[in-house]
């Protein structure tokens, strides 16, 4: 039995929602009742069956609709997908990684057959059957990075490693939490993180970079990051901020449950074999407050995290305008009981 892919939207009428099984597997990002930046990086190894970590590249019920949304974003704004000229080899590396992992994790949906450089890729959910020559650009309809990331959930940044730093030299970014690939492409690790408050002073990026530079092939790492989004909108880009920003004024005590979403990024970091570049998939998971509150522990804990979040972080994450309304709504789900440690729902 394969995944039942939902037909839903992340714009206009916003029909996105999670099935009960997907609510239970949501990657809730808070292991305690408060939050501050930390270098929370751990080995990206397979997790429990049924969790988002069961496979290292997760495919879920939103796959088909997310890919349709990505195609809409790219049609409107091709600058969301860019690759500097020296990054083509890394693109092939990424294509290999994603095809291999998706075929391994979901054989009922994806099949990859390799005969030397002659590859045959079958993507059943999207109805794609592609024979091509690995390394030969003329045999695919897009560059290798764009080709495979139009078929893979999450944003992808490919980082070149040189001069003891990582450089954002290629990527496809259509489901981002308010940062611009077009502006940041070509920047090094410290530069593209420059606008993040508090973390530089804590030495977070220096330590994180040191860790990332040493990641070896076959030993990926991961971390979770989070923000909140009004309406289940994947494309919360700065490019379109003037279009989605007004959503933040529409939150009322009556609609918090349906309108306000916790947005979690599962970020993973992989060394690529031929190019020695790193790929940094940023996979976005959304959950409505109504869905989240089906776990008493999650609602209780999110209430405490949001209520006590430092003002700088709330501002940076764009929560200022609606935080009080959400905290008030969540307070009704917080009976003051202690929460158990760890991320799980109960």
């Amino acid at each position: 039995m394969g995944i039942q892919f939902r037909t839903e939207t992340f714009r206009d009428d916003f029909t996105f929602r999670n099935s009960p099984e997907h609510i239970r597997r949501f990657p809730f990002p808070f292991h305690e009742d408060s939050y501050m930046y930390a270098v929370n990086i751990e080995p990206h190894v397979p997790g429990p069956k049924g969790s988002v970590l069961e496979n290292l590249i997760d495919v879920d019920e939103h796959y088909v609709s997310e890919m349709a949304d990505r195609a809409l974003v790219l049609a409107e704004d091709p600058l969301r997908c860019q690759s500097l000229p020296h990054m083509t080899l890394a693109g092939w590396d990424l294509l290999e990684l994603l095809m291999t992992e998706q075929a391994k994790g979901y054989p009922e949906h994806f099949t990859l057959t390799r005969d030397g450089d002659n590859w045959h890729w079958i993507n059943r959910p999207l109805g794609i059957d592609q024979k091509f020559v690995f390394g030969d650009l003329s045999t695919l309809p897009y560059g290798p990075m764009e080709y495979i990331t139009r078929q893979s959930q999450g944003d992808f940044c490919i980082l070149d490693q040189r001069d003891g730093n990582l450089w954002m030299d290629a990527g496809i970014v259509t489901t981002q939490a308010d940062w611009s690939l077009d502006f940041d492409i070509g920047m090094n690790f410290f530069e593209w993180h420059a606008p993040v408050p508090l973390a530089h002073e804590k030495g977070v990026f220096t330590r994180a970079l040191k860790f990332l530079l040493n990641i070896q092939q076959g030993q990926p790492a991961r971390r979770l990051n989070w923000t909140m989004t009004i309406n289940p909108r994947l494309d919360t880009s700065p490019e379109n901020f003037h279009k989605w920003g007004p959503d933040r004024t529409t939150v009322t005590p009556e609609n918090v449950g349906q309108k306000v979403h916790l947005r979690v990024e599962l970020q993973s970091f992989w060394r690529l074999p031929r190019s020695n570049a790193m790929v940094f998939p940023i996979r976005c998971y959304l959950i409505k407050m109504d869905e989240l509150a089906t776990s008493k522990k999650w609602a209780r804990r999110l209430h405490r995290v949001l209520r006590d979040l430092p003002e700088e972080l709330a501002t940076y994450k764009g929560l200022t305008r609606y935080r009080p309304t959400v905290v008030e709504w969540l307070a009704k789900h917080d009976d003051g009981a202690p929460t158990s440690s760890g991320f799980g729902p109960d």
């Binding site: 920003g245 007004p246 305008r321």
Partner: peptide, 9 residues
Amino acid sequence: QGVCINAED
């Protein structure tokens, strides 16, 4: 970088 300052309203 210039970003709309009153995008929300």
